[in-house]
C-alpha cells in the first residue's frame, strides 16, 4: 500500500502530503514516543494523538512515512512545517486510535 492509497480509500483529512508514492508496510499505534522509538518499524504509519513536532522527530528517526492524528486533535503550525520539511505525510481524523488501527489492519490483512 502507498500513501496515495490512504488518501483515496479513507476519509482522513489530508494535512500534509508530499510523499504520495511512498510505500507503507504496516502501522504502529501508540501515544508514548519512547515506545514508538523502541518498537515501531521503518515504513509503518504512526497512529497517535500526539499532535506536536516531537512526533515528527520520532517518525523521521525511525523512518515512518506517515502519521495519522486521531480524535481531531488540533495540529499546530510548527508540526505542519516540520512534516513538510521531513516529507512525512500528516493525516487527521475524528476516529480514535482503535478505529483507525482496525481500518488499516483490515486493509493490510486483505492481501
Amino acid at each position: 500500500m502507498k500513501i496515495k492509497d490512504i488518501m483515496e480509500r479513507f476519509d482522513f483529512e489530508q494535512v500534509v502530503v508530499t510523499n504520495a508514492d511512498r510505500t507503507i508496510t504496516g502501522g504502529y499505534t501508540s501515544d508514548l514516543l519512547s515506545d514508538v522509538m523502541a518498537n515501531a518499524q521503518e515504513g509503518q504509519v504512526l497512529i497517535t494523538i500526539q499532535a506536536h513536532k516531537n512526533s515528527i522527530a520520532v517518525a523521521t528517526l525511525i523512518g515512518m512515512p506517515a502519521i495519522i492524528i486521531c480524535n481531531t486533535r488540533p495540529v499546530p503550525e510548527d508540526m505542519i512545517e516540520a512534516a513538510e520539511k521531513e516529507s512525512i505525510a500528516l493525516f487527521r481524523t475524528q476516529k480514535n486510535q482503535f478505529e483507525v488501527s482496525g481500518i488499516l489492519y483490515q486493509e493490510f490483512m486483505r492481501k
Binding site: L33, S34, D35, M37, A38, H52, N54
Partner: peptide, 15 residues
C-alpha cells in the same frame, strides 16, 4: 501529556 516520561528512555538506550 506530550508522550514522554514513561520510564522507557534509559532502558531503551541501554538495550
Amino acid at each position: 501529556s506530550i508522550g514522554f516520561g514513561a520510564g522507557l528512555g534509559l532502558p531503551n538506550a541501554r538495550k
